[in-house]
């Protein structure tokens, strides 16, 4: 290093004088590309942080500002009203809406993981004719817009569909205001992603391990849940967390498959909208509710972060 700087000598000073600041910067960047990479990293990180974290900050600003002052907002709260986080629970039973969201999310996640595990096992570890086409079909269906299913599913789940077999007519059950019309479409919609993730993971578990488990005394299913699933923990965690978050954030079915009451299994979305009255819109309460609603997921992601990252980036499993 020292020889390099000393070797530049007097001539380098001359050259530096002739160039402008940009020219010098380019010169340095070429000599030391690491600086540029680091600079680019900071720029990208700051951009990312601003775009993702600013909304949270903005929510906080809105929440702390008394509602009547929320006009022409700047970057700072106009006032300080932390009791809004208590008022929000008084005005609307927001904890019940959160509980509903949790139940819906966990139920869906369990169903999705169970079914996707079976499907992932079959797709990842068995050979059978038509496997590629079937997998392609599943992936294709996962790209259908959920809105396309909405009306038929609404008709189905509100008991307006009947099936006639000869003299017998079977009417679909009225599931409106129960968890079922949300959990069922969620499970179906989020299954393909989980199947895809678990297929890659289960496919990487060496055959020998499954064979060993089977010789030792498990069935294929036993080998799946005793050996393959534990070894694919990062993949299962990834699929689980992604499904949970997706359900927790879901708006469409959550909004339309119930009457918006906490007792009808309406999730967080309905809770936030519930603050809106006929004559006023308490933005501060809604903002506070949004923050409270996000917190559990943020905590979950922080806890599971390591797993998710390793799950998304690699099938990091050695034999």
């Amino acid at each position: 290093m020292s020889s390099e700087t000393s070797g530049v000598g007097v001539g380098a000073d001359d050259a530096e004088m002739k160039r402008g600041p940009l020219g010098r910067w380019v010169d340095k960047a070429i000599k030391n590309p690491d600086r540029v990479y680091r600079a680019m990293f900071y720029v990208a990180t700051v951009f990312f942080l601003v775009t993702t974290l600013f909304p949270f900050y903005w929510l906080l600003v809105l929440a702390l500002t008394p509602n009547r002052l929320i006009t022409n907002m700047g970057l700072l709260p106009k006032g300080f009203q932390p009791e809004v986080f208590i008022t929000m629970f008084e005005r609307v039973p927001f904890h019940l809406f959160m509980f509903n969201s949790f139940v819906l999310g966990i139920t869906t996640t369990v169903i999705v993981l169970l079914i996707a595990s079976l499907a992932g096992y079959v797709f990842g570890r068995l050979r059978f004719p038509g496997k590629g086409i079937l997998m392609l079909g599943i992936l294709a269906i996962s790209y259908f817009p959920p809105a396309a299913f909405l009306i038929p599913l609404f008709e189905l789940f509100t008991g307006n569909t009947a099936l006639s077999i000869g003299a017998v007519t079977i009417s679909s059950p009225d599931l409106f205001n129960t968890p079922a019309p949300m959990v069922l479409p969620f499970s179906a919609l989020f299954l393909p992603l989980s199947i895809f993730i678990l297929t890659t993971f289960y496919g990487q578990i060496p055959d020998g391990l499954e064979d060993a488990a089977r010789v030792e005394g498990t069935t294929r299913l036993g080998a799946l849940f005793r050996v393959i699933v534990p070894l694919s923990a990062p993949g299962v965690a990834t699929a689980g967390v992604l499904t949970f978050i997706a359900v927790y954030n879901e708006f469409f079915f959550s909004f339309l498959m119930n009457n918006g009451e906490a007792s009808s299994w309406a999730p967080i979305v309905a809770g936030i909208l519930k603050y809106q009255g006929q004559f006023d819109t308490p933005f501060n309460l809604m903002a506070a509710a949004s923050i409270v609603g996000v917190l559990p997921v943020a905590v979950l992601v922080i806890i599971a972060q390591e797993r998710i990252v390793s799950g998304l980036t690699a099938g990091a499993l050695k034999e």
């Binding site: 020998g208 391990l209 064979d211 060993a212 089977r214 010789v215 030792e216 005394g217 050996v227």
Partner: peptide, 30 residues
């Protein structure tokens, strides 16, 4: 019959120990 009902034990070329279990759990698995 499935492997578990045949009364056989097998040692594999790639050894196939369960990596998420310790030696005791591996040996006592069956």
């Amino acid at each position: 019959l499935p492997p578990k009902d045949r009364g056989v034990a097998m040692v594999f070329q790639n050894i196939a120990l369960f990596p998420h279990m310790d030696v005791y759990d591996n040996i006592s698995f069956g």
